[in-house]
């Protein structure tokens, strides 16, 4: 029983991370209607910036805030300067651009900071409150940070007109323009926010998996799965989906088939869920007319 609890707890921790990443993906999806494959690498890059700031002697929380700000600006600039010319390009051309961004970020991070693994500090105290090694303060912190981000995002999208305008711009750009929405800026804003969320995710992940240019690759896959399981257009669903995938991965790995194939099986279960519920657990099926 103790062991099972431990597995679930550790699943929840990785789940919190996946949820963080999933939130970033949902953010981009809700505000631009695309899935950004470079999301993980952008988060990784931002985490390196945070690392560099902390190395330069800046206190953690100031570096944390600065990184979010830098990431937000970076995301905004990427949309303005790199993706804007492609606003009318076919979807697959955009996918290729995301792949291009992914390899550029990965390569530049490797060039600037090398591929050796680095330690990244946690803002939370060391040790665990239960005394059983069940969960650490950092893990609780990650869950809390994810919950806060989810709350802020939900309020933003549900209850502010700016959030509403961003959703409208993503769903039907032509109509949004006819309602006076500056669509192009909404997209840029979406990228900025997604990059900011990604940077938070990166800074939460890095103390656990350590910092290196490839740290987000595997996590992005889980985040992607989590976002889809929960319903890609639904921030709350994405967070739940992230946790589901995290726990599932741990239990499948421990009890069913061992660690070698746990990624595969977790993903197969995810796909199975999607076949039964094609819009995700909490997704809304959008009505289609011929």
């Amino acid at each position: 029983m103790e062991f099972l609890l431990q597995q679930i707890a550790s699943g929840l921790t990785s789940g919190a991370i996946y949820a963080c990443v999933a939130l970033g993906l949902v953010m981009i999806y809700v505000s631009t209607d695309h899935i950004n494959f470079a999301q993980g690498e952008m988060a990784m890059f931002a985490t390196y910036i945070a690392w560099a700031l902390i190395q330069a002697g800046i206190p953690y929380w100031i570096a944390f805030g600065l990184t979010i700000l830098i990431a937000f600006t970076g995301g905004l600039l990427i949309q303005r300067f790199i993706l804007k010319p492609l606003e009318h390009a076919p979807v697959l051309a955009l996918v290729v651009c995301f792949i291009a961004l992914l390899s550029i970020f990965n390569a530049i991070a490797g060039m600037l900071w090398s591929y050796t693994v680095k330690q990244f500090p946690s803002p939370f105290p060391i040790g665990d409150p239960t005394g059983h090694g069940l969960i650490s303060y950092h893990q609780i912190g990650v869950v809390a940070v994810t919950a806060i981000m989810l709350g802020v995002l939900t309020i933003f999208f549900r209850f502010t007109t700016l959030g509403l305008a961003m959703r409208a711009a993503a769903q039907n750009p032509a109509s949004a323009r006819l309602m006076g929405v500056r669509v192009s800026w909404m997209l840029a804003l979406g990228w900025g926010l997604a990059a900011a969320i990604g940077s938070v995710a990166g800074m939460m992940v890095a103390p656990i998996v350590f910092l290196d240019p490839n740290m987000m690759t595997g996590i992005l896959i889980y985040g992607f799965a989590g976002a889809l399981v929960g319903g890609i257009g639904n921030p709350g669903g994405a967070v739940v989906g992230g946790f589901v995938v995290g726990v599932l991965e741990n239990l499948v790995g421990t009890y069913l088939i061992g660690n070698e194939l746990k990624l595969t099986f977790a993903l197969i279960i995810v796909v199975g869920v999607l076949i039964l519920k094609p819009a995700g657990l909490f997704g809304r099926v959008n009505v289609k007319r011929v």
Binding site: L164, R167, A168, Q171, N172, S175, L178, R284
Partner: peptide, 8 residues
């Protein structure tokens, strides 16, 4: 075609 935001 009315340009409805179908998902909203």
């Amino acid at each position: 075609g009315r340009g409805t935001f179908a998902g909203l």
